[in-house]
Amino acid sequence: MRILVVCGAGASSTFVAQRLRRAARDAGVPLTATAGSEASLAVDIETADVVLVGPHHVHRIEEITRLAEDRDVRVALLPDDIFRNDPDGSRALALATAGTTSIQH
């Protein structure tokens, strides 16, 4: 499974992607997690199975979901507190592996 974590410039998504990789490794879940930015989304989505969208992009979630649907990619909006309340990456991993498109606030 290939996970793309998207935020504005790619900085916050880097932390989430690192935590997600660690959580997946600890849980024995085979996946790759990479960070992307809003600017690179159209290209990066081509190699993703799941896109986790930073909570500050809630205003773009419908647009991102439409883009993803054309490629059979699942989308989940990360919760508002994901950057401070998911130190082990387990919440991000649960969203990534949920198996359905979900928009959560």
Rank of each mutant, 00 (worst) to 15 (best):
R2D: 15
I3K: 01
I3T: 15
V5P: 12
V6M: 13
C7Q: 02
A9T: 14
A11F: 13
A11D: 03
S13P: 11
A17I: 13
A17G: 13
Q18M: 15
R21N: 12
R21P: 02
A23L: 00
A24N: 05
R25G: 00
A27Q: 09
A27Y: 02
A27N: 06
A27S: 11
G28K: 05
G28Y: 06
G28T: 01
V29I: 14
P30L: 10
P30C: 00
L31D: 05
L31I: 13
T34E: 15
A35W: 05
G36P: 10
G36S: 12
E38F: 09
E38Q: 10
S40N: 14
L41V: 14
L41N: 12
A42M: 09
A42S: 14
A42T: 13
D44M: 14
D44G: 05
I45W: 08
T47C: 11
A48E: 11
D49I: 03
V53G: 05
V53M: 07
G54C: 09
P55N: 03
H56C: 06
H57F: 10
H57A: 00
V58W: 03
R60Q: 15
I61P: 01
I61V: 15
E62T: 11
I64Q: 06
T65C: 01
T65N: 11
R66H: 12
L67E: 12
L67K: 10
A68K: 11
E69M: 07
E69S: 13
E69I: 01
D70H: 09
D72T: 14
V73C: 11
V73L: 08
V73P: 06
V75Y: 06
V75S: 09
A76D: 01
L77F: 01
P79D: 08
D80Y: 03
D81Y: 04
D81N: 12
I82H: 05
I82D: 08
F83C: 03
R84D: 08
R84Y: 03
R84G: 00
N85A: 12
N85W: 03
N85C: 08
D88S: 14
D88M: 08
D88H: 09
G89K: 09
A92P: 04
L93V: 08
L93N: 04
